[in-house]
Amino acid sequence: MENKAINKLFEQKIIYHKNIVNISFDEKLKCLIELQKLDLEMKKSTNREIKSFEVVWNLK
């Protein structure tokens, strides 16, 4: 890959990180719930153990 393309990718990665780190805590909580759902789906589909406390938060 050309240096230019690598630099572009790297730039995008930095922008992504800055955006995702700087979103509000409430937005992060919304992301967390989506991540929890994905995590549980993945565990179910791969028959991994689901601990009893692993409930998806019902945040208002």
């Binding site: 990180h17 995702i20 995590d39 409930v55």
Partner: peptide, 12 residues
């Protein structure tokens, strides 16, 4: 961690 960095899955 969620407060300071990007979201990663956690349940408790």
């Amino acid at each position: 961690c969620l407060y300071y960095i990007e979201p990663t899955s956690t349940f408790d």
